[in-house]
Amino acid sequence: MTPRRKRMVVIGLLVLGMGLATTLILRAFNQNLMYFYSTSDVVAGKAPTARDFRIGGLVVKGSLQRLPNSLTVHFVLSDLKKEVTVTYTGILPDLFREGQGIVANGQLGADGLFVAREVLAKHDENYMPPEVAASLKHQPDATLTR
């Protein structure tokens, strides 16, 4: 084996070994790398009970309730399978709206109500002008009425 080929093999093995080690580590810590639990996870009891964790999902349309004379809101989060009701007192981010994905950090009460300390909006990967978004929204209706 020429020295050059030897170096190539050593580097190849190095990359392979690093890749393998990283894969194993990432698999072992998979749960810790998840930024949030889905609502199904929470309903299934997979989320921690005694400490803070993050929950992510879509804000169910029509579920947002503002308590009068306060910054407290109630809304229902869903991953299209299971739902969790969340309460939060504070200022919501600009992107927060019904139908929007959000991540809330807080604790799950014994009654199944999630008390959020912090609410972050998660935006999707779609970018379009408002007119296009509006016409997309109306398209299904148009096909239905035709």
């Binding site: 790398l33 930024y35 919501l92 981010p93 600009d94 992107l95 927060f96 912090e118 609410v119 972050l120 909006a121 998660k122 935006h123």
Partner: peptide
Amino acid sequence: KPMWGTWWVWDA
């Protein structure tokens, strides 16, 4: 900061 509501999160 303006969109998510935070400067930084420790996500992947």
